[in-house]
């Protein structure tokens, strides 16, 4: 093993010394996801039957929408140097809260807003404990993941709840605008715009990256680091709760055990593929969006070519390893 590790290390050292790599690496990190995206698209256009149609692209966007929301929140948290693996459970938690309130006969919009407020409180809790008490984000959010999943299963009495009778919720999942455009497309656009405004255009985005680079330095320059960190976890929870609503309405059912399961992993993978630094300090919104689309499109490619589904996991793993490898900086 040592022998192999040494060889890889040597390879990296030689790479980093070469002048060409110094030019190529930043491009690969910044646009790796875009390159992979273009590659996947061209592969599909060439080899997959019936791929090159508007309906396929609408379908991919429809299937990506929930993931996009989670991944935008994740981009904020990761570029701040944290992580939030409770998002999958928050999705399910917001879902069950909405459904419980609908069962009680509450107004659809009121129940959504109340559920989002409660999820924001969960995010506040995450943020306060992480920034003020200083517990490792991965540990705390893991605990929240387990606790919220437990609450969800308990509130749903362990059963899958069909949602066909809640007309507004059902329509939200299945509606099509102007004949053929799934309503999810608009949410997709909404998520993209919000992400750009929040991370790239607002001061908040700059603060986030500053905290990600060095929390101490950010604090010394006068940024209210604790407040910004709490805000980041609130946003992550809010995005996740919205994703929960979308995913639940898309399937027209609430499965307390499975809704949002592994979404945190897919979101982290999308962020990594997108070129956002895993160590924090640099957010890459376009990359994250590309990353999400790639994650979905791998599944689409596998389905449409009738390849065993296990292959899609192998491809995903390969892309993640590659995107992390090009971010590598030698320690000496």
């Amino acid at each position: 093993m040592d022998h192999i590790v040494k060889k890889i290390d040597d390879f990296y050292k030689r790479l980093e010394k070469s002048n060409k790599w110094k030019i190529i690496q930043p491009i690969l990190v910044d646009y790796g996801a875009t390159i992979a995206f273009i590659f996947l698209i061209s592969f599909n256009i060439l080899f997959t039957p019936n791929f090159f149609q508007i309906s396929t692209f609408l379908l991919i966007i429809k299937q990506t929408t929930s993931l996009i929301f989670v991944a935008v929140g994740m981009t904020i948290v990761i570029s701040m140097g944290g992580t939030d693996i409770s998002v999958g459970s928050i999705m399910a938690f917001s879902g069950i809260l909405i459904v419980q309130m609908l069962v009680m006969g509450m107004n659809f919009y009121v129940s959504i807003i109340l559920a989002f407020i409660i999820c924001a409180l969960v995010g506040t809790f995450n943020g306060v404990i992480i920034s003020k008490v200083g517990i490792q984000p991965i540990i705390l959010t893991l605990v929240m993941q387990i606790v919220l999943r437990g609450f969800t299963v308990m509130l749903a009495k362990s059963t899958v709840i069909p949602l066909h009778k809640y007309k507004l919720l059902y329509r939200l999942g299945i509606m099509r605008v102007a004949g053929d455009i799934p309503i999810q497309v608009f949410f997709f656009a909404f998520a993209v715009i919000i992400a750009f405004l929040l991370i790239k255009k607002s001061v908040f985005g700059k603060y986030i990256e500053a905290i990600g680079s060095s929390r101490k330095a950010a604090h010394l320059t006068g940024i209210r680091t604790d407040f910004i960190m709490i805000l980041a976890y609130i946003l992550s929870a809010l995005f996740a709760s919205f994703a929960g609503l979308l995913e639940m309405s898309r399937t027209a059912a609430l499965d307390p055990n499975l809704l949002g399961k592994n979404f945190e992993l897919d979101a982290i993978a999308s962020v990594a593929i997108g070129g956002t630094s895993m160590a924090g300090g640099k957010a890459h919104v376009l990359g994250t969006i590309m990353g999400c689309v790639i994650m979905t499109m791998i599944g689409t490619t596998v389905n449409m070519n009738n390849v065993p589904i296990a292959v899609s996991n192998i491809i995903k793993a390969g892309i993640i390893v590659f995107s992390l490898a090009i971010q590598h900086k030698s320690t000496d």
Binding site: T48, P49, N50, L59, T251, D255, G299, T300, M304, P308
Partner: peptide, 19 residues
């Protein structure tokens, strides 16, 4: 495969009908 999951079965079906 859809891993016994409703949401995955939905996605897989959409993709297959596209093909």
């Amino acid at each position: 495969s859809a891993d016994n999951m409703r949401s995955k079965a939905q996605t897989v079906t959409e993709n297959l009908i596209q093909t």
